[in-house]
């Protein structure tokens, strides 16, 4: 229960900061300044946007299907947020005590497709339907490379529990991270990152909500706070996949500073609060890389997107599965 409350509050605070950070990142990459008016250097911009969004009129067209239209954003948010329940916070506070924690996370994330389908269908609008069908095809296709690359990590560590994976990487700082202890996991990390970008509908895979082609994709007909819930779930999915990537590949809540000689830097920077800080710090760096990629790369066309998943990422992840199996056997001997 403690992790649930913590992650809920952290997610809400994170979205407020992340929207501002994204607009500033976009601005600096595009050689302009971004929001500067509201508050000193535009810090209060997101709060102004939130206030505007809450008081907007809740437009509901006549021909929509009432109950699925209202339920769809809630289902997407619930599916994304339920995945936070298996994440550990630090060495004492673990998530919920399920044996197959990672497996449960992947299963619950695949439920948000239902919400997107309901949103597109209930809107009774050609553009919403196209957007939601494209989004469903994209999310379902990229679940396979994501699951297979996570499976590579599970083969090497031998456990599905995220807290045990973090414990296996504790010790001497940077050297004990999974990606440095087992260098065979570098390519699965890239596959996981690309598939994670596609799962949360971010550029270069944001065809479902591309503003220049489909008006808004599956959230065209939503206004005001319901649209806000869709955006909240998108940022929530970004954060969730970054935290999972941190725990699986980059050491979780362990400190990266090693023990050099008599300077016990690792001991000095471990503990309950330090652990939480290191986990969130590393995931926020991954989130920043996702934002950076968004404003640098162009968008992929639908057939390029599907061929990337089925013809390149899936065979590559099956090959990496084989190589990780050989690595694990060599380690055991």
């Amino acid at each position: 229960m403690l992790t649930l409350a913590f992650y809920l509050l952290f997610l809400l605070a994170f979205v407020v900061v992340a929207v501002y950070a994204e607009r500033k990142t976009a601005a600096f990459i595009q050689n302009r300044l971004g929001p500067m008016e509201v508050g000193p250097k535009g810090i209060l911009q997101t709060i102004a946007d939130l206030l505007k969004m809450i008081q907007k009129e809740d437009i509901r067209a006549n021909a929509v299907d009432k109950l699925p239209f209202l339920l769809a954003p809630i289902i997407v948010f619930l599916a994304v947020f339920a995945g936070f329940s298996v994440l550990p916070l630090n060495s004492e506070v673990a998530g919920s005590d399920v044996t197959g924690g990672l497996f449960l996370l992947l299963a619950i994330i695949s439920l948000d497709v239902l919400g997107i389908l309901m949103a597109g269908w209930a809107s009774n609008n050609k553009y919403s339907l196209f957007g939601s069908m494209r989004s469903v095809a994209q999310i379902v296709s990229y679940e396979i490379p994501m699951g297979l690359s996570v499976l590579c990590v599970v083969i090497v560590t031998g456990t599905l529990d995220l807290q045990k994976t973090s414990f296996l990487q504790s010790g001497n700082g940077l050297i004990n991270w999974n990606i440095i202890q087992h260098p065979v996991l570098i390519i699965p990390f890239f596959i996981f990152f690309i598939a994670g970008l596609a799962e949360s509908n971010r550029t270069p895979f944001d065809l479902p909500e591309s503003e220049s082609e489909l008006i808004g994709g599956y959230h065209t007909e939503y206004s005001g706070f319901r649209w806000g819930i869709f955006m909240l779930s998108e940022y929530g999915m970004m954060l969730l996949l970054s935290i999972v990537g941190t725990i699986l590949f980059f050491g979780g809540w362990n400190s990266p500073l090693p023990n050099i000689g008599s300077f016990n830097l690792y001991e000095m920077t471990s503990g309950a609060i330090w652990g939480t800080f290191w986990l969130l710090f590393k995931s926020i760096i991954l989130v920043f890389i996702q934002m950076w990629v968004r404003w640098t790369l162009p968008r992929l066309r639908v057939d390029q997107l599907m061929s990337l998943s089925w013809k390149y990422l899936t065979p590559l992840s099956i090959l990496m599965l084989f190589i990780c199996g050989i690595w694990k056997l060599w380690l055991i001997n």
């Binding site: 449960l104 299963a107 619950i108 695949s110 239902l114 389908l117 269908w121």
Partner: peptide
């Protein structure tokens, strides 16, 4: 039956329902 529950969500609710909607 933990594993069965996870497989049910992954395959049935996340696969068969999407197939039916398509």
């Amino acid at each position: 039956a933990e594993l069965l529950a996870i497989v049910q969500i992954l395959l049935y609710a996340g696969g068969v329902v999407i197939l039916l909607v398509f």
